[in-house]
């Protein structure tokens, strides 16, 4: 029992985190910025939302933000279009309001863009079939080094929706290595820590 317990605990603490890391198929570029629930932009019919941002890493594969869908009223299509800095449509994805719980953090996934590191992009979110009573809303926050500015109702303002970009790792071993490095760095004296 002593061996069984020691091995089980070591497996739990040292091997399982690696196995879990191997299952991660996309990595967030950072934490979601804080936001006020009172500051929002409604999306319906011709009222769409445009967000400018910088991709901090290569292999951009998803954009995520918190979306309000009060009483799950929006059951219409929500169209996501991603453009590069030359305004060329690069990726497009359609979601359905039925799958968006009110206030949930929604990941919009698309095929990875390999050379996305430090490049400027913008996306639009629209729901042209939705009426005024079927509105979805994005929250708003101030600018960060990733979130640049947004256009809503034809007005351009700094900041935007509290978004996070996701990037496909090069390989599972690479992700596992990063997880262990992050963990070990936390164990080191403060000036060595990554965070």
């Amino acid at each position: 029992m002593i061996w069984f317990t020691s091995i089980s605990i070591m497996f739990l603490l040292f091997i399982i985190p690696g196995l879990m890391a191997g299952l991660i198929d996309m990595i967030p570029a950072g934490d979601q910025p804080g936001y006020s629930v009172d500051s929002r932009a409604s999306i319906y019919r011709d009222r769409y939302f445009t967000q400018y941002f910088i991709s901090k890493d290569k292999n951009l594969t998803a954009v995520a933000t918190s979306i309000k869908n009060p009483n799950l009223k929006n059951k219409k299509n929500i169209i996501f279009n991603l453009y590069d800095d030359k305004n060329v449509l690069t990726r497009t994805t359609t979601l359905n309001g039925m799958n968006i719980e009110d206030g949930s953090f929604i990941k919009i996934i698309f095929e990875k863009i390999p050379d996305s590191k430090n490049k400027k992009y913008h996306f639009t979110l629209s729901s042209p079939d939705a009426g005024e009573e079927e509105t979805i809303e994005v929250f708003l926050t101030g600018p960060t080094n990733e979130i640049l500015n947004y256009i809503y109702d034809e007005v351009n303002k700094p900041g935007g929706t509290p978004m996070v970009t996701f990037h496909k790792p090069d390989s599972s071993p690479e992700t596992i290595k990063l997880v262990y490095i992050n963990w070990f760095s936390k164990l080191l004296p403060r000036h060595f820590q990554k965070i």
Binding site: P17, M20, A21, L23, I24, M26, I27, P28, D31, K107, F166, T175, L178, V179, N182, W183
Partner: peptide, 8 residues
């Protein structure tokens, strides 16, 4: 270990 596990 990492909060990337939040997405598993």
């Amino acid at each position: 270990y990492t909060n990337w596990y939040d997405f598993l």
